[in-house]
């Protein structure tokens, strides 16, 4: 297994270089270093000298990918791409274009993101699987039909509606929790109740439908029939046998998302005023801050690769037939 992990980690390197290159290309197609300087220096009374100085200080006065004036290998290393990307591979994110330390910002913002994402993930998973199992239990009854209709309805509603509706109903009309805001420590709970509720309710439709399909596929297999024939209670059949055997498709969808919880949720964080990582990237794109954009995309890629690796590893835990080689 160790060899597998090492091999997969090595595969990640060209992927990360590719992601970096793509991010770099996409960013600089839209923004030039001059645009970045103007954005940082402000719109009023910016002189061309100030723009040149700003670029020179931050290394944006070099060619993007190839330095034709530099000799040999320096033609590749004395470029914006190389200088800005190579340090990422040792997780040195450097400073944002306004001078703030990116690692420090990430460290500060990741906890609020996790405080929101983990409960939504866990409660949502538990609730979706439970509801899906209940629906599967009552398959082909009016509960199943109603459940599917309700799920489709819930799926069809936009996430924004859940957020605004939730804020309107729970906070504005019923005055039960704050509309938005955040505090550290235990005080965070009262601010997280509503976004977690909204996140869970918003995910019920799609989650239930997905897990119901998985369970129904399993429920018709021979081993289920055998279990029933043995006289096992339907509850035991579902929770002990079906759930266990449905774990591989569940894990495929779930484990890969675990590391990404760290990246936060853009809309939810924005509407509920949660100072997480969700809005960090989008703010950086708006501010044309390449340093943050590349760091966050890099981090996202690393986490996604990690998620895929964890998924593979988790298969071996739930299915003894799977061998990683």
């Amino acid at each position: 297994m160790l060899a597998y992990i090492v091999r997969r980690s090595l595969y990640a390197i060209p992927i990360l270089i590719g992601v970096n290159l793509l991010t770099f290309w996409l960013f600089f197609v839209v923004n030039s270093p001059d645009d970045m300087a103007r954005m940082q220096l402000g719109q009023k009374r910016v002189t061309p000298e100030a723009i040149e100085k700003w670029k020179a200080e931050r290394g944006y006065d070099k060619p993007l990918l190839f330095n034709s004036e530099a000799p040999g290998l320096a033609s590749l290393t004395h470029t914006i791409f190389f200088e800005k990307s190579v340090r990422l591979f040792v997780f040195d994110f450097g400073s944002a274009d306004d001078g703030r330390d990116i690692a420090h910002d990430i460290q500060q913002r990741m906890f609020p993101s996790l405080a929101l994402a983990i409960p939504v993930f866990l409660v949502g998973l538990l609730l979706n699987i439970s509801i899906a199992l209940i629906i599967a239990f009552f398959r082909a009854t009016y509960i199943d039909h109603m459940g599917v209709i309700l799920s489709v309805m819930l799926m069809s509603i936009s996430a924004l509606f859940y957020i605004i509706g939730g804020q309107f109903l729970v906070s504005k009309l019923l005055h039960l929790v704050p509309i938005s805001g955040y505090e550290g420590g235990w005080s965070a709970i009262k601010f997280l109740i509503l976004p977690v509720l909204v996140g869970v309710v918003g995910g019920i439709g799609a989650g239930t439908r997905w897990y119901r399909t998985i369970f129904l596929e399993e429920i018709n297999k021979d081993y289920v029939r055998t279990a029933r024939a043995k006289g096992l209670a339907e509850r035991v059949v579902l929770f002990k046998h079906v759930l266990k055997n449905a774990m591989i498709p569940i894990l495929t969808g779930v484990v890969v998302t675990i590391p990404l919880l760290f990246m936060g949720s853009l809309i939810t964080e924005s509407f509920f005023g949660i100072p997480g990582l969700g809005s960090y990237t989008i703010d950086a794109i708006r501010a044309q801050d390449f340093a943050i954009v590349r760091s966050m995309v890099f981090l996202g890629s690393v986490l996604y690769i990690l998620g895929l690796l964890l998924t593979d590893l988790s298969y071996t835990l739930v299915d003894p037939r799977v061998r990683l080689s």
């Binding site: 804020q167 509309i179 805001g181 509407f271 100072p275």
Partner: peptide
């Protein structure tokens, strides 16, 4: 000064006296 990125929560909190 609290960070409010969206108009709707800001407006509602003003109406609630916050």
């Amino acid at each position: 000064f609290s960070l409010e990125k969206e108009d709707i929560p800001t407006w509602n909190k003003f109406l609630q006296g916050y």
